[in-house]
Write a protein that binds this DNA or RNA. Structure first.
Lengths: 334, 334
DNA sequence: TTGAAAGCGATACCAA
DNA sequence: TTGGTATCGCTTTCAA
């Protein structure tokens, strides 16, 4: 049985009210009493029951991270950034994975209507084409801050990177290296992030008169299907000579397929990936990357959310923060 | 304001007790009433307040993951496995990072004395040489299950991989490839996992009469210091011709240093890493790895913890589950 | 400066 | 099968 305020009160012959206030460092309580209480608390190993506190206060000092997956260096790093900020402000962090399923995402957000969390940091799933579940939650005063995979149509704070520009630069880079048939491998078209990257790609093609070969390929979450798509594309008549991978895990897949099909990177196919992966430089061939500022994005998103919470979700107007990605040219596109 | 049991009761002219029982699918309640209640709940968008429930029941249906870091493919995958099991059984998952700090680990566990979580899944920090904080928690009936970085001296369930054997095989492999001066780069000697690996290494050296060059190097969490240690080791008179990296992130560091110092892998130095990393095969040179079954370890650990919880932490005797790692030989040790 | 008491929402005991 | 009510531990208002 853990120590309660009541026990402390009993021991010191004080009321629970006084003890509660003392522990909260209320100005109504005398210095001496505070000292007495905090000593007793220390000694008795008292830790405030968070559930009683949450129930009473209507706030849980807990936030949720809702993301598609975790075995991805971007999300792992972003969590790192979020955790750092949360810890500093005394918040606890619940983690939920949607595994790219809208149904799961809906179920998770549905649960949040219970008041389990004070706010949410979220990157939507590939399947999220309907945002009612998110809207509903926001309407019931649970602030949501998006990062990376945002919903642009929802009026709230978003933390993203410069997807259009990065993609534009990346495409131009491939073109400058002699590519004329560049394929863009993305995930769901539902995602604004993907649309922005696609648009950057298309714009670059257009400016270079290469729109004849405009090839946006959607690879879903299913690994086998993606592999088949790659294999078909690379063995087809109109084989690309350049590829932009919008999803980290496609890199390993493509490297494998190229090895199997004996396609040389970069001489036969130039490749570039949007990833946060820190070993790109040591791959064979070393991989040209657009590296997102994952840690920073996590920090900024968490900071924005906690600010909303401390301002009681008022006067914090929605904003879009754009943090720059860094493109590093390596052998895979040389 | 979210819907409460009281509101449902009011709407249906029932008592809160009845509604509560109906929602819990109690046998005391008639089929008709249950249907009535569940319909109303659905319609009103009712979600049980978890904090009120936890307060009353003394259980939170929440577990914590306490790990050193998250930007590491092992831990990321392990979380994946944990989350899967937790979700299936209706548990929520709080995540805490110690960043290899004992102080932080103690503070986190201290908080758990509040009843915030029903159980804990944990991999200890490098600095954890004192386990009082863990013992205290276990004594207050909060079950702890260790995975990967376990505390062998604490009497509870541990999920590990075959560290001694893997390390033994790995060392023998290097020896069979002609190495005679093999260095073992580990993290804290506090960690049983590290000791087991070191012992496997030492045993292999001994059996091959190579104990003259027995070199266990401790790289802490500080990146600069580790780099210096590597640089010194590789520029010293007794430069090793083989290296076992016990920590994933040392791989990138070593590849970089070898590039800078123009040391060729594998001709001048053979390298092998304990990692869960899925692109090892595409590194240059491709990296020989001991791959831990991270996802599976997460699943097994979570399953064990939840079983303890459902059995009220009785009759679940402590056990040690050993899941095998897979060693894959590649160019870095050829 | 301190204390009594109501109440957060759900659960569980006991009574009807 | 249903309902009244005490209770979980803490916070907060109001009174002393």
């Amino acid at each position: 049985m853990s120590t309660t305020i009541k026990m402390i009160a009993h021991k010191l012959s004080l009321s629970v009210a006084t003890v509660s206030k003392a522990l909260a460092d209320s100005h109504e309580i005398s210095k001496e009493t505070k000292l007495l209480v905090s000593n007793a608390a220390q000694e008795m190993g008292y830790v405030r029951n968070p559930y009683a506190s949450s129930l009473r206060k209507g706030r849980s000092k807990t936030i949720a991270i809702v993301i598609p997956e975790i075995a991805d260096s971007f999300f792992a790093e972003a969590i790192n950034g979020i955790e750092e900020v949360a810890l500093l402000q005394g918040y606890h962090v619940l983690i939920y994975l949607t595994h790219e399923s809208l149904l799961r995402e809906q179920a998770i957000l549905q649960d949040f209507r219970s008041g389990r969390v004070d706010g949410i940091l979220m990157s939507v799933s590939e399947e999220t084409n309907d945002t009612e579940h998110i809207k509903t939650l926001m309407e019931s005063q649970v602030p949501v801050v998006f990062f990376d995979r945002v919903c642009e149509e929802l009026n709230t704070t978003c933390v993203v990177t410069d997807d259009f520009e990065s993609s534009f630069i990346a495409t131009n880079h491939l073109i400058s290296k002699g590519c004329s048939k560049i394929a863009f491998m993305g995930n769901s078209i539902n995602l604004a992030i993907n649309r922005n990257r696609v648009n950057g790609y298309i714009e670059a093609l257009k400016q270079n008169g290469l729109s004849d070969y405009q090839n946006v390929v959607i690879c879903g979450k299913d690994k086998e299907i993606s592999q088949q798509i790659f294999a078909d594309l690379l063995s087809g008549p109109e084989r690309p000579d350049g590829m932009i991978l919008s999803v980290e895990k496609l890199s390993a897949m493509l490297y494998q397929i190229c090895e199997d099909m004996m396609i040389d990177i970069p001489s036969q196919l130039k490749v570039l990936t949007f990833t946060n992966f820190n070993m790109a430089q040591f791959l064979s061939p070393s991989l040209t990357t657009v590296k997102q500022p994952a840690f920073q994005m996590g920090k900024v998103a968490a900071t924005a959310l906690l600010r909303k919470l401390s301002f009681n979700n008022t006067l914090a107007e929605p904003e879009t923060v754009i943090l720059p990605s860094v493109i590093t040219f390596r052998k895979s596109t040389s």
